[in-house]
Nucleic acid binder design. Structure first.
Lengths: 353, 353
DNA sequence: CTGAAAGCGCTTACAG
DNA sequence: CTGAAAGCGCTTACAG
């Protein structure tokens, strides 16, 4: 290889005694090349180690072409909304891909209203985006979206099986539950009891919270099939934040609860109860402001981070890779189960949100 | 904005009534444009939201141009060598950037011989690479390299202050030590004693191991300034793996050691001693084969991962970004302190090493 | 101070 | 089955 220089299609053409058009045909395995010519060209390509210049090919293919991606997330109700994070990651990816023609349009739906999600989906489908990034909270409407969309859709945050082929970038909630089991078991062992707190919205437990509880219980039954652990669980309405201390207090006193696993992002709502106990350890999810504060004060001991910003980032990068290279592998991804203690709280640049 | 289409430099030229050459001059803030013309062009650029097509500009600038990066790492002595990981990350980055003209040349040095490192540096400097990625194990030789190199050098794995401006992609070892302190403190509290095990090479403790011990001790003094903790530490020759059990056994029996912090990647060497104890928890570093095995068997309880593959990956990406965009921010980076338990052991595709 | 032209490497549409 | 030419958007070297 000549130093500091790549072979171009022109070099290959010259070395193989053909035109660049023919080299292009061979490279793309197109019709209309005689077997002998093809072999000759392939030999030269192999010998030279030719690599096509992706800049040049994209210049021609995608030049002048904007990739519009629709991002549909729940409404951001306050400054510390969870949904700021995926948006932050999306924004970061877009800023990297701005010059490559990627543009985002954000949509927001009311997480309590299926109709709101559906209306947004209809709007998006009518506007011709190249891809759709959203969350699969409403099962039927998500199925409908996958069925109607002719472009890839990527679901963030939660995995659930849908009828059609759908793409997911998410943390494995079952594994996350097992990790929570490990962390608490190390601290509590067999002497104390465990309490799993699920918070309900409109009376139901979110699917990934349920998966987390299953994983948690699985940790104990898989690792210690012969032993008996005291694992209680309660469901409590998310909306009713005042009564939660009252509901939990008797369980704590009666059952010697030493490990607390809160399956959603609201571990901070248990602050009052947790403060009453000296020997109880807590694992929660998500680095929201209040959880982070309690982690700093050691009222919460471990936070499992779903890296929502990274999810948003990878979704856009994955879509771009698919649309420009046809490579589907970036459309589905499992995000690592990140364990956070007080000392390794990540530092984010919040101001860019 | 016209849907599905980006403005090109040609559009801007037309709208501003100038030639594309003039638009280019304005875009790059070059000399030779009258103030009025410049303002007119800038107005159009602003109004249209013009973004330059990075493909096209790189095509012209970097076309035909290979970016050669020298990667100098310690010799890989066995199949589970730590240094395979950065190499894996480097390889992954290069495969993504192959079509953009990035090529790697690997060099290896004997980590016990400063002269071996120096000889490799001389060779690299004589061969005109666009960047150098290595490790700063030998202080003087590293300083010399930074002084002589006219291209960016990025040091992986370890931070140490060097005379000249050098770039580091590394995990903050002091923070990692504090995290280790937190993990063990949660389990052991004030009742038991802690033991920090440093392994020496040629009689000296590696700088990042020392930083980890300092961080570990700092965790206790910062969080509990009034309390007394029993923290012992020993240095033991890495080469002498047989005697380590003998040396540790008496300490264990005499001092009620309940928490073990091994500051390098060889926690697995303590297997025999650890097996004797039922109530002792261990934190070690790095997901090598033997540590991972012991983590699976719960002889080791936490592993702190330095993400060496990620370090290698980010080094190449950072260099590329710097060389193509002039953006220096990717040349320096702190890698998160990743906590690994049995349940969230990452799955790597080893076979691509 | 400004413009017109050539060229980066690849792809496409057309000619033979 | 093969080639020659135009063009993607930008940059550079040259002309005026």
């Amino acid at each position: 290889m000549k130093p500091g220089r790549n072979y171009s299609i022109k070099d290959i053409a010259r070395l193989a005694n053909v035109s660049i058009g023919t080299v292009d045909r061979v490279l793309h395995d197109r019709k209309g090349v005689s077997q002998t010519t093809k072999e000759r060209v392939l030999a030269v390509i192999k010998k030279t180690g030719y690599k096509k210049n992706i800049m040049a090919s994209r210049l021609k293919l995608a030049s002048n072409h904007i990739i519009k991606i629709a991002v549909l997330l729940p409404e951001i109700k306050d400054d510390w909304s969870y949904w700021k994070w995926p948006k932050l990651g999306v924004t970061r990816a877009v800023s990297e891909l701005l010059e490559s023609g990627v543009r985002i349009k954000y949509f927001h739906f009311d997480a309590d209203l299926e109709e709101s999600f559906q209306a947004n989906c209809r709007k998006i489908l009518s506007e011709n985006y190249s891809a759709i990034v959203t969350v699969p909270f409403m099962k039927d409407a998500s199925n409908e979206l996958v069925k109607l969309a002719s472009v890839p859709d990527i679901f963030l945050d939660t995995y659930r099986s849908l009828n059609n082929s759908a793409n997911f970038i998410h943390q494995d909630s079952h594994v996350a539950g097992m990790v929570a089991g490990r962390l608490l078991y190390n601290l509590v062992g067999e002497e104390g009891a465990y309490l799993v707190v699920n918070m309900t919205e409109n009376g139901i437990v979110r699917i990934n919270c349920q998966q987390r509880e299953n994983g948690f219980r699985d940790f104990f039954s898989k690792n210690f099939p012969e032993k008996e652990f005291s694992i209680f669980s309660i469901n409590h309405s998310l909306e009713d934040s005042h009564s939660i201390s009252e509901e939990l207090s008797p369980i704590f006193t009666q059952e010697n609860i030493r490990g607390l696993f809160v399956t959603n992002s609201r571990a901070f709502m248990l602050r009052e109860v947790m403060a009453l106990l000296t020997d109880c350890f807590t694992v929660g999810f998500d680095l929201n402001y209040k959880n982070t504060e309690l982690l700093r004060e050691q009222e919460i001991h471990f936070i499992i981070n779903q890296k929502p910003d990274y999810q948003g980032y990878m979704a856009i990068k994955g879509v771009y890779k698919y649309l420009t290279e046809g490579n589907k592998e970036g459309l589905n991804m499992k995000i690592p189960v990140e364990i956070i203690v007080k000392e390794n709280i990540p530092i984010y640049e919040i101001d860019t949100i």
